[in-house]
Design a protein around this nucleic acid. Structure first.
Lengths: 251, 251
DNA sequence: CAGTGGTCTAGACCACTAT
DNA sequence: TAGTGGTCTAGACCACTGA
């Protein structure tokens, strides 16, 4: 029997029909069979063309909208979007993703985990009173035995649980808070800055004082917007950069 | 007539039922009537409780999933998610958002817009041959008359159109490419680094040589993954920081 | 096995856009 | 007025989970 020129959906496939249609439309947009600004076929046209219900077509289009590839206008139709390339969003976690891909040996070393009394600066950062008992952590993250990140973290000491080094495999502040606090972290405010390394940071990272570094601070709040922890991370600027890819031809 | 304790949906409202239910469930999660890890009522329970169809309930839950507040497991149910606070994503565009909120005067000044021949370094950055004719732009962005960002941008000169300063109101590289190139930008690779300002940058920004700065480079590709433009932006590190808020208690 | 979420249908009515 | 996307229904079957 003669094949139709137009591709059809495999109704017996395990892959849902809406997903097959989504991928098919995505491919056509990538191949510029549908060009930015152009009209997509109407929902009813797609439904009858592929012999599926309109709801299933809508599900496929919803995926395209979520992917930012099309937009809909009530009463007008569905249109192919322009790729937006002005979204400069940088993810500091790509650090860990890249490393796991490139088979780089990652090592996390705990330098210090003690209980201290808050001085004035720390009390302000934690929104608490001077002399409040606080947990204090310092650690170094290395890649291939080269120090990359130096971190210092503080939180109010509510749990009274012993500090077990074995608990510190994930040294991220949200995780530490989960372990060492009775309150549940609910939100976080992170600030990324550039700085020059000071003596303490330079010593820990083995770099010269004054080297440009990324400086990230994180303040963690509970459900009532009360501060429960504060931390800073110093990323070596000479070894670390953050990459962001955007658009339609990724991968 | 006596009101039920349980809130009900307003079926006559302009607001869609799925959206009312979404907001109601969101509020209960925020108020911790449903706590992280807990089971949400099943779809059928919600449907009969609010006297709406299961599909409408599913639409509401889909919104919650998209917001990261719940997750579903086939055959088990729908559960309230833990707030994830380890997503360190920084958006360089908050710059413009903040400024428009705080009524800061923003001024963009074009320093230079000329045609040059590519030297070896530029040819490599643009993936083209030495001596290719290129457009070259330099500009300064100031806030309240204080220079904040210095930018230099290059692209292969294909369009042969005259350079009109009036076209340069949006100095972003994707926009310049759209105006001055026949090819349509399709994807972009952005890299964020820290650096010390050099002489050229320091003069433009009125800062001391060696001040820590954010350095962002952007490479723009067309639909065939061919480079069509390259640019760099220098953000003053002493005046600029990037803030990221995450979690459930935002706003 | 019963209960859950995942997919899909055929049909209906509405709000909006363009002519 | 005709055509579009937006919302909603009642009902069906499937795949997966857990007892």
């Amino acid at each position: 029997m003669q094949r139709q020129k137009e591709k059809v959906l495999d109704k017996n496939s395990i892959i849902p029909a809406y997903y097959q249609l989504y991928k098919m439309l995505e491919k056509k947009i990538r191949k510029r069979e549908f060009r930015p600004g152009e009209h997509l076929p109407t929902e009813m046209e797609l439904a009858s063309q592929f012999d599926i219900s309109r709801i299933t077509v809508r599900r496929a289009i919803a995926e395209l909208v979520a992917a930012g590839m099309v937009y809909t206008q009530q009463g007008r139709g569905t249109f192919v979007a322009m790729p937006r390339l002005d979204n400069y969003t940088f993810d500091l976690n790509n650090f860990y993703n890249e490393i796991s891909q490139k088979k780089i040996r990652l090592h996390e070393e705990l330098l210090e985990a003690t209980i201290i009394k808050a001085d004035e600066l720390l009390a302000r950062r934690l929104g608490t009173a001077v002399n409040t008992r606080c947990l204090y952590f310092r650690d170094i993250i290395s890649a291939n035995d080269e120090p990359l990140v130096y971190e210092a973290k503080y939180m109010v000491y509510t749990k009274q649980a012993p500090i077990l080094e074995s608990e510190l495999k994930d040294p991220s502040l949200p995780n530490l808070v989960t372990i060492h606090s009775n309150t549940t972290p609910a939100s976080s405010k992170d600030i990324l800055m550039v700085s020059k390394s000071n003596k303490e940071e330079s010593d820990a990272l083995g770099i010269k004082v004054g080297t440009p570094v990324f400086l990230m601070t994180q303040t963690i709040y509970d459900g009532d917007n009360k501060i429960i922890a504060w931390g800073k991370s110093i990323y070596r600027g000479d070894r670390y950069k953050i990459i962001n890819c955007q658009g339609w031809n990724i991968k």
